[in-house]
Design a protein around this nucleic acid. Structure first.
Length: 149
RNA sequence: CGAGUCAGCCGGAUAAUCGCUGCCUGUGACGAAAAUGAUCAGGGGGAGGAAAGUCCGGGCUCCACAGGGCAGGGUGCCAGCUAACGGCUGGGAGGCGAAAGCCUACGACAAGUGCAGCAGAGAGAAGACCGCCAACUUUCGAGUUGGUAAGGGUGAAAGGGUGCGGUAAGAGCGCACCGGGCCACUGGUAACAGUUGGUUGCAAGGUAAACUCCACCCGGAGCAAGACCAAAUAGGGUUCCUUAUGGCGUGGCCCACGUUGGAACCGGGUAGGUUGCUUGAGCCUAGGAGCGAUCCUAGGCCUAGACGAAUGAUUAUCUAUUACAGAACCCGGCUUAUAGGCUGACUCACUCA
């Protein structure tokens, strides 16, 4: 049986991870979300969330939206290829119900996956950064990767 | 039962499934080993009454600092509590309410300066518009001069109130009572109070969230504080080695100095990591002191510590759509938001007995 866990290896952890994705990403959008994505080399999808205070004023609502997004990502992670995703939020999200937002998110994952596929063989504009990134992401858990790279 | 006042409490529950996080127990990958402890399994924890606003006060940390003053800011009836406060408790005074009860920056305007629209004759050691009274004049309509704050009128406010005496008319002008000021006395730690005594005809009102004066308090910045570890072929210093009495630059040339390779060591420190980080002015129970805030004693308990940021989602049941809302170094307060519900004490009205 496949696992539905959502550990630290499935998240974007540092600002450098985020800034990599903001360079020439694939996009997908719904009325309340914008998703940016880019393929990675680590063998699993990863998710990062940005919920701006400007778009969603109350801390409580921001938490709610993040939880919904994580939950939806967790349940759909096996339908995704190895891509890094950053989820952004548009104003008005905090007025939507849980069911409505979950439905939108579920559609998005599939769409985004399709868009990333033709983008994978694209020439990488930044040669150094992805390599450096992979090394860093793997080093805390597996040491045998480090001497090889 | 109705209307109301005060005080306190709860802030969805249960079950199933899939997940997150740090703690404990076991497992123990990688490693020669130790150490570190990956991974997996199990156990038991895991947001609030306001976590919010950041309005006050502290702890903690770093910086500054002999002492004192000025400036600036804050507080402002009295006493107490407290680590401290602009907080709380008790008391006083004033105000609101039928009552329970509630509200109040509540020091000084006799240190000085300033301010007060409109109305009104006059707004401060004031003032004569109408009226009243006297004298003079008179064309008998009234006029002029003076006196007068009792009456009218204006205004938020017109320099105590009522009565009697008094007077040309009046007036604290005099007297009685009421009110006020001052000095005693008594009670109270004090604010303050008084069926107390004496004295004073009462004289210069309001406003200090106006300047100001008086008394007391205040060094600055904040956990992104601060401390530690520490990559990069980012970059600095010292010593040594060698191509090498080398090359390049300064220089007429030598010497000398700078620069160029490698190694070792040293300190500073970016990315990143660790720590600060939860045992605390802590919570619960019992007893005691006090009207109370609070304090003391004894026993017990450990109750979130994340860091792109953990408590969620779905389903079922409970009348079930559920308020305000998310810890970020930690405490004590204040203020604001809050669906629905529970408990206790008290006041008033009605009915019944």
């Amino acid at each position: 049986m496949e696992s539905f866990s959502f550990g630290r290896e499935l998240r974007l952890l540092t600002p450098s991870h985020y800034s990599r994705i903001f360079q020439e990403p694939a996009r997908a959008a719904t009325p309340y979300f914008t998703l940016l994505a880019k393929p990675n080399d680590i063998g699993r999808p990863r998710l990062g969330l940005t919920v701006a205070k400007k778009r969603c004023k109350l801390a409580c609502q921001r938490n709610r939206i993040k939880r919904l997004a994580r939950e939806s990502f967790r349940l759909n992670q096996h339908k995704l290829d190895n891509i890094d995703i950053v989820l952004m939020v548009k104003s008005g999200v905090d007025e939507q119900s849980n069911a409505e937002l979950t439905q939108q998110l579920n559609k998005m994952w599939r769409k985004l996956n399709e868009r990333c596929k033709p983008g994978a063989p694209k020439p990488k504009p930044f040669k150094k950064r992805p390599a450096k990134n992979v090394k860093k992401a793997n080093s805390p858990q597996k040491r045998d990767n480090t001497p090889r790279s």
